[in-house]
Design a protein around this nucleic acid. Structure first.
Lengths: 358, 358
DNA sequence: CTGAAAGCGCTTACAG
DNA sequence: CTGAAAGCGCTTACAG
C-alpha cells in the first residue's frame, strides 16, 4: 500500500515526552543556552532523547514565521535562468551564488513563475511581487526593466544587482565588473605596440556596461596623451563587416580595432582574411569581454586578445553584499562593489603595419 | 539618502486599505471564489487595487503554516546543483524543471544550505528538514542517501525523484528513463549485424539505472534466442583497458562491447588502435548513454553508437507529476513514469570480423 | 533554571 | 456576500 501521510511530531510532542514545556524544547534546539537562559544538563538530555526517539524536525515555516526571517535568498533573472541558447550566460554567476549561499546557510528561491506573456520576466505581475517571498534577492539580466527596479528600490526591498545599474529615483546596490579599467588596459596594449588610431566597434544598445567600456576607451587615450577621435566610433551589423570597409578604415589611418560584441569577432576575422590581410601583421584586433561567452571563450577564435569577467566571484560577492544588507538594514545607503577583470593578451594584437596614414 | 527597509505590508494592511476583513483578502487572493464563497466584483477589485498599491505578497511561511500552499517547488540535489565539474549533468533537467514550473506558476526553491561537512547534501541536517519550506520537491542526484529517502517517504512528504529509485520501506514516485529498452535496442543492433558474443563493461557501482541497463542486455539476448554468458560481464578501470586485454577477449570469441561508462570510450578507442585494429572492422563498440555527458555528447568521439536520455523532458514530467500529487495527495500510491530514450546508431558498430572463435 | 502567554501572518470552518 | 475567531507550529520576551 501507499504511505499514509503520518502526522509529523511537533514540538509539543517532544515536550510531553520529555516532561518539559515547549519553551524548553525550543531553547534546547536553538542552543539559546547562555546569558540568562540556563538549562540543566539532564533536562537538556531528556529533550534530546525525546527528539531522537520521535525523529522530530522543526517545521521551518513555523520557525521563520515566529523568528522573522526565512533564510531564503531570491534569485531573479529578467530572462529564463536556464536558457537553452546562451546556456553559459548565467551559469558562472549561479555557481558563485550557490556556493556562497550554501556557505552562509541560505537556500535559494528562483523566481520562475513570473514569466510574462512576452517571455520576459516581470517583477510585478498582476500587482503581485513574489520577491517578497525571500528575505532579499540577487537580480541578474541584461534586459532589466528600469521602471520595475525603481519601484523595487522605492519599496525598500533589499536586493543586489549583478552588474552596474543606474535607475531614476535612487541608487541601488550592485556588484559590477570593472570594464573601464579592463578596456583601458586593452587600449594601452594597442598604444604600447605603436597604434595611434584604434577603431571602436560598438554595441547598438548603450547599457551601463557598454558605457563603462567606452569610458575606458577614452581614459586610455587621455592616459596616452591622445585625443580620442569621435570618428573612430562605429556601429555596424556583422553582415556589413567587409573587406571593403576595412580598406576604407585603413585609408583613414586606422590600424586596429576593439569590439564590444563577440559576434563581430568571427566576421572581422573573415573580413581581414578577405582583404588579403593577416592578423596581426596587417591589422590588430581585440575583444572587450562579452558576458555572453564562456569563461574559456569557446566561441572565440583562440588567442584573441581580450579580458575575462569574474562572473563566479561576482555571484559570491552579490550574496555576501545582500546578507550584509539583511543583517544591517539601516547601514547607510547602497552597497557597491566593482571587481577587476583579467586582461588576456592574445596573438591578435601586434605592431601596426607601415601605412601612408601615419 | 538611502532607502529605509520599510516594514513589508501584511494582509491586514491590505484589508484596512480596501476596507474589508482579512478573510476577504485571503479569499480573493486564493481565488476561493465559487461554491459557497462569493465576493462582489467591486469588493474584489478594491482588494486587488490595495494589493497592487502596497506591493503586497503573502508570506510563504505563514501561508504554508496555515495549511495553504505556498506555490514553492523544492529542488534538492544530493550534490552541488551548479557543479563546476560536470556542469552539464543537472543542466538539462533544470531547463525542463524551470520551464514547467514557470508554466504552472510555481517558483523554485533550491536547497543549497543543507551541505554537510563532506560536501554531500543532507536532507536531514541538525534535525531540520528544510524541504518542508516547499509544497513538495523534485529530487535529483546520483549519490542519493537511501536512508534519508526512506525517512522522507515515511513522513509522507510529497516528492518526485528524477531517475528510478527503490528504497526499503516503501515505493516512491519517480520519472525515469527507459534504459532497459534502450540497452536492448543497442544489443539488438549488434545481433542484427551478426555478433553473438558482446562483452558488457560495467560500472563498479550497481545503481538502479545500471541494473536497468543490465536487464536490457539480458532481455536482448532472450529476444534473440541467445543465452547471456555471465563471463561476458566485465568490470575494469580505464587504466586497465589495453590492447592485450582486447586480444584476450577476442580469443574468447568476443567481437564487440557495450559500456556503461563514458570514460571508458576514449580508453577503448585507444586500446583498439593500439591492438592494430580499426573500428568497426575488427571490433564493434557502443556506449549505453551516460547521464554525465552532454546531450550532444561533446566528450564522446563522434559517431559512437549510443542512445540519448530525455533529460529535459524528465524535468518537465517530474514537475508535472509533483503538482499532480500536490493537488490530489490521496490519489493512490506512488506515481511513476518511464520515458523512452532515443537510439543513436553510429559508425562504431559493424559486422563482426571472421574469427576462429565462431 | 523553567513555564505561561503572546504573537508571527496567514487560511478556513463557521456564523450571520 | 462578508466577518469574527480559532489555529497552524514555532520563538521570545516576561515572570517567577
Amino acid at each position: 500500500m501507499s504511505h499514509p501521510v503520518k502526522r509529523r511530531p511537533r514540538q509539543a510532542d517532544v515536550a510531553r515526552l520529555a516532561g518539559v514545556s515547549p519553551t524548553t524544547v525550543s531553547l534546547v534546539l536553538n542552543n539559546r543556552v547562555g546569558g540568562n537562559v540556563r538549562i540543566r544538563p539532564e533536562t537538556r538530555q531528556r529533550v534530546l532523547d525525546a527528539v531522537a526517539r520521535l525523529g522530530y524536525v522543526a517545521d521551518p515555516a513555523a520557525r521563520s514565521l515566529a523568528g522573522g526571517q526565512n533564510r531564503l535568498l531570491g534569485v531573479f533573472t529578467f530572462e529564463a535562468i536556464f536558457p537553452i541558447q546562451q546556456r553559459d550566460f548565467y551559469y558562472p554567476f549561479l555557481v558563485g551564488i550557490e556556493r556562497e549561499a550554501g556557505r552562509l546557510g541560505y537556500d535559494l528561491l528562483l523566481f520562475t513563475s513570473s514569466t510574462g506573456t512576452d517571455g520576459k520576466r516581470r517583477l510585478y505581475q498582476r500587482g503581485n511581487n513574489r520577491l517578497r517571498m525571500a528575505d532579499g534577492a540577487v537580480l541578474l539580466g541584461n534586459e532589466e526593466n528600469k521602471q520595475e527596479l525603481s519601484r523595487l528600490l522605492a519599496e525598500g526591498y533589499p536586493f543586489v544587482f549583478v552588474g552596474r545599474r543606474e535607475v531614476p529615483g535612487g541608487e541601488l546596490s550592485y556588484v559590477a565588473a570593472d570594464y573601464t579599467t579592463a578596456t583601458a588596459q586593452v587600449l594601452a596594449h594597442f598604444f604600447a605596440h605603436g597604434h595611434r588610431r584604434v577603431a571602436y566597434l560598438a554595441h547598438p544598445i548603450e547599457t551601463e556596461s557598454m558605457a563603462d567600456r567606452r569610458a575606458g576607451y577614452r581614459l586610455a587615450h587621455r592616459q596616452a596623451g591622445l585625443e580620442p577621435d569621435p570618428g573612430l566610433l562605429f556601429q555596424r551589423p556583422s553582415t556589413e563587416i567587409t573587406a571593403t570597409w576595412l580598406h576604407e578604415l585603413r585609408a583613414q589611418g586606422i590600424t586596429g580595432m576593439v569590439t564590444e560584441m563577440g559576434e563581430h569577432v568571427p566576421a572581422l576575422m573573415a573580413a581581414i582574411h578577405a582583404a588579403g590581410w593577416s592578423l596581426p601583421r596587417d591589422f590588430s584586433l581585440a575583444f572587450l569581454g562579452d558576458p555572453h561567452l564562456n569563461d574559456d571563450h569557446d566561441d572565440l577564435p583562440r588567442d584573441c586578445t581580450t579580458f575575462t569577467i569574474p562572473r563566479e566571484e561576482m555571484g559570491v560577492q552579490a550574496v555576501r553584499l545582500l546578507t550584509q544588507i539583511l543583517s544591517n538594514p539601516e547601514g547607510g545607503g547602497p552597497r557597491r562593489l566593482t571587481l577587476p577583470c583579467r586582461f588576456v593578451p592574445g596573438s591578435t594584437v601586434g605592431p601596426p603595419p607601415p601605412s601612408p596614414g601615419r
